[in-house]
Design a protein around this nucleic acid. Structure first.
Lengths: 157, 157
DNA sequence: TATATGGTTTATAAAGTTACGAACCAAAAA
DNA sequence: TTTTTGGTTCGTAACTTTATAAACCATATA
């Protein structure tokens, strides 16, 4: 694969990643920015470079960048004597992915428990189904804790 | 708690569940229908009952029910000599929740691998970060498989 | 002090989504 | 055959989201 082919594929991948995050509930431009910051060889982009590369307005870039920052997906570095911000992907701890999933799963579990609590018949079809789901969640949550430990352990190798 | 209090709380919970699924990308009415089918003591609802309970039009109900069916969240039962459909929560296997997550995670993993494949520098900051994420996914996927096995095992008790 | 740089905020246009009523349709009942 | 039941589809209004241009602002530079 020539360098040109590679770079062409990278640009195509930006669009694909954009659509991917779009489906995950992100706004289209934010998804594409994230794609840009992920796939290109260059990994630091200024505000102006982002607007040029993606052909978007300053305001769209400004709004999307703020959203991505709030979500904790990107951050920026500044250089002494340089007013520009250099945006890049946020290198968050991989284990925070698990922690997020755990939080969500606990929220669902609590909701399901409350539904059962309010049921007249604790052995109705839904009650039994929800209890099953809760039990499944508990198995997953237990193994998630193990996942974090396993991951931290494997990190040291 | 009196029965009236309980039922009042159930109705409040329907709205809360509606907002919950709304945030998960579902349309408001679909979320509320799902809430209705989850929390009430009655667990089988006809089309007409749904429109009455939630005070929505027939067309809204029709569209939302079709979407929920396609997503595999609900299904209906029919009775011999009765044209009505009795909608209820779909009692899918709890382990299918994991299988879905596994599918998603594998898609993300493949995307990350492809990004690295297209990088000029396989040891760039992003490459290293993405490799870390991939490794984390692999640990999670391994433990997910264990979760399914553990769950199936505990089911027999 | 005036001007350029690096953005943010505001107002609005364009597009997309949601929900509704009304018209419609197929099957069953009268 | 006509009417009722149990929905679906269509056209549209209301609302929400997205993206823009233009105005604005703070800091740095001339």
């Amino acid at each position: 694969m020539t360098t040109e082919e590679r770079i062409k594929k990278q640009r195509e991948l930006i669009e694909e990643i954009g659509r991917y995050f779009d489906k995950e509930g992100m706004q289209p431009i934010a998804g594409r920015i994230l794609g840009l910051l992920m796939v290109m060889d260059k990994e630091l982009f200024t505000f102006e470079e982002i607007t040029k590369e993606l052909q978007i307005s300053k305001s769209s870039a400004s709004v999307a960048l703020k959203n991505l920052e709030i979500r904790g997906q990107i951050e920026y570095t500044t250089l002494l004597g340089d007013r520009k911000r250099y945006f890049h992907l946020k290198n968050h701890e991989a284990s925070s992915v698990i922690e997020d999933t755990v939080r969500k799963m606990n929220a669902a579990k609590n909701m399901f428990n409350y539904i059962i609590e309010l049921k007249a018949d604790k052995n109705s079809k839904n009650s039994i189904f929800l209890k099953e789901m809760i039990r499944m969640f508990e198995v997953i949550l237990f193994n998630f804790n193990k996942s974090i430990i396993d991951y931290e352990k494997s990190k040291k190798d």
